[in-house]
Design a protein around this nucleic acid. Structure first.
Length: 217
DNA sequence: TACCAGGAGAAAA
DNA sequence: TTTTCTCATGGT
């Protein structure tokens, strides 16, 4: 089976087992950007609480976040963990966003320029940038996260220690530039990683079992 | 109690 | 250049 076919079989299995995921949870492009920073190494349920605090305080705007004192912003972010770090990162992102003309200004950039500009912001690494590019701006970049590495390494399709860009290019070459597919695929990987793979890695009733002969049980 | 979660950057080796 | 450490709350 070709790489392209194998990656598509994995997608179909995940979709059949879990259905559509309706990602990213968020009411606006800006909320998605905030969520992408807050979810760094953090469970989404904790992020939801922090975003709810921002909404309750009327602070879910770039201007309000820039204006808020660090201690107050950190207090709103507390449920999401790393609140001091994330307060700084959100302020950095918001200052930069305002300087670029807000989300409308970003929407005018090419996918390459948008991605490069995001990664240049302190506190936004490749995965967070790609979450934003794909889910807030609906551009075709494949998001590589810890679940992607774990699941595809178990399937024997990657080693798991490849560089971020190496894996991103691998997925993008195999699947073709398709933002709706990338959206659903990454969401399904996270769903599978959270709900199934961690508890029962590739056991007999895993929906991905039997795809690759080199898969590690 | 220990481990993990939709990472990133700084410091150390 | 590569590896290790730090940041921190909440659920299992």
């Amino acid at each position: 089976m070709t790489a392209r076919a194998t990656f598509r079989v994995v997608y179909r299995r995940l979709y059949a087992a879990n259905g559509r995921q309706h990602w990213w949870p968020g009411d606006s492009r800006f909320e998605i950007m905030v969520g992408a920073v807050l979810t760094q190494n953090t469970a989404w349920t904790n992020v939801e609480r922090a975003i709810a605090n921002l909404k309750r305080a009327g602070a879910l705007t770039p201007e309000a976040i820039v204006k808020a004192p660090h201690r107050r912003l950190a207090a709103w972010l507390k449920p999401s963990g790393y609140f001091n770090v994330k307060a700084k990162r959100l302020k950095e992102m918001c200052r930069w966003l305002i300087g670029r003309g807000g989300v409308r200004g970003l929407a005018r950039l090419s996918i390459h320029d948008l991605r490069a500009a995001l990664i240049a912001v302190h506190g936004i690494g490749p995965e967070t940038a790609d979450d934003i590019v794909l889910y807030a701006f609906e551009r075709p970049v494949f998001v590589i996260d810890a679940y992607t590495r774990r699941i595809f390494a178990r399937l024997g399709l990657i080693r798991g220690d490849e560089g971020y860009e190496t894996l991103r290019h691998l997925f993008e070459r195999a699947l073709g530039a398709d933002a709706p597919l990338f959206n659903e695929y990454h969401a399904l990987i996270v769903r599978h990683g959270k709900d199934t793979c961690r508890k029962r890695p590739l056991c007999g009733d895993c929906c991905l079992a039997g795809i690759c002969p080199t898969a590690k049980e």
